[in-house]
Design a protein around this nucleic acid. Structure first.
Lengths: 225, 225
DNA sequence: CAACCCCTTCACAACTCCCTCACAACTCCC
DNA sequence: GGGAGTTGTGAGGGAGTTGTGAAGGGGTTG
């Protein structure tokens, strides 16, 4: 399920929104100020950001601008104010949706779903997973680029390797990888993952996927010197 | 810029949609009931109508029927209901697109643009899609040029191949391609895309359209050396 | 109103890819 | 070093996907 970052300086509101989103099956990250929000967005890679415009210090609009610059993360804006100018600024920054306080948490959840549904098909150009300097996985093209060389992968292969490449170094169990492929993890298929891994290694290169004995696999972290 | 008529019995929604559309550069007319909607459509001659199905009194479907009878006005339907039967009725009446509430206003604007683009074959007069050095798709002429050779395509064929050629390499699902042709993707028509692809390949050349097994199709990227 | 074009469907052939199997190679722990 | 358990790997069956020619039907044109 998707991860949502909720940013608001009122802890009460953050908690309320968190409750509703989690109840709706989302994973929720939170932040109560701008700098924390940006940091969390970078590390947590949420699928969508719910952002209060009225943040103290680093303003909500600044946060939105920074997020926009860094990638195509959908943003739903909240504001206490109803002035026309705010709406316009929000729109110019490319907010994907807009709610004025007081809002119904239920409606917020509905809008989150709607925006995510749309974002899924939109596949922004930034849907490229980069690992180190010469490995890329281009989601809308469903292809890998290894040092400039284009590599065709099958649907399952791509889903597996892309999942791992999003978090290099993290270990994934076969069940988790299966989940990415089939939606449901079925114990009996787990050895099939081994076969996929073999094929992926053959295509992208042995060195990129490491075996963690007794646990699963992980994408190798790029050599940082 | 185009004029859009927005019909909904909830003033709050009308206002929201108006804001977004006007910000997008459209001229907006509004109506909160069926009879007014029909009158406004006759006098204001909008380029497109956004119509709530759940109107009280004269029903949204009646309004749609009347509009259809009077001319080729594109219609985007809104509905609170999600039942399949509603969709069918909407489609039979020739809705050009369909959104269920709650919807994101930004998405609505995007769909309005998409429908208008479809409605007028004359998107932008100078719209020529070039891929590599010897492939061109001339939108206003609705014809392809392959290495100087002129190729006639049918409307559907052109819309499909032009959509793909705008982003060479990107994979499109059958549903997305159907969307380009019909405005609404209907599962049962998906194999029809295969037939179109076959015909396109026969006309422009096999090598330009690649099959992505289990996903869809893509336009081949030009050879970059 | 006949001729035509285009879209869709159908049926079957051809193909791709996923999974399984079997066995070899390896790892870990004692 | 040995044994139990885990992983690597090549081959092959089969389910599912795609290619394709033919045919039906709706709409348009002359």
């Amino acid at each position: 399920m998707a991860t949502i970052l909720v940013v608001d300086d009122e802890p009460r509101i953050v908690q309320l929104v968190r409750d509703y989103l989690e109840h709706g099956g989302f994973t929720v990250l939170t932040a109560v100020d701008g700098p924390t929000a940006l940091r969390t967005a970078r590390t947590g890679r949420p699928d969508l950001v719910v952002l209060d415009l009225g943040l103290p210090g680093l303003d909500g609009l600044d946060v939105a601008r920074s997020l926009r610059r860094e990638g195509e993360m959908p943003i739903i804006m909240l504001t206490a104010r109803t002035e026309e100018s705010d709406k316009l600024v929000g729109l110019e920054l490319g907010a994907d949706d807009y709610l004025t306080k007081p809002f119904s948490p239920k409606e917020l959840v509905a809008r989150v779903r709607a925006v995510l549904r749309r974002a899924e098909g939109a596949a922004a150009p930034s849907d490229v997973i980069r690992v180190g300097t010469d490995v890329e996985f281009d989601v809308p093209r469903m292809e890998a680029r290894i040092g400039g060389r284009r590599v065709d992968l099958t649907k399952s292969e791509f889903q597996i390797v892309a999942l791992m490449a999003r978090q290099p170094g993290r270990v994934f169990t076969r069940a988790q990888l299966l989940d990415a492929v089939r939606g449901v993890a079925f114990e009996s298929y787990e050895r099939a993952i081994d076969a996929h891994i073999k094929n992926i290694r053959k295509k992208v290169g042995q060195q990129y996927i490491e075996t963690v004995f007794g646990v699963g696999y992980r994408f190798a972290e790029p050599n940082q010197v």
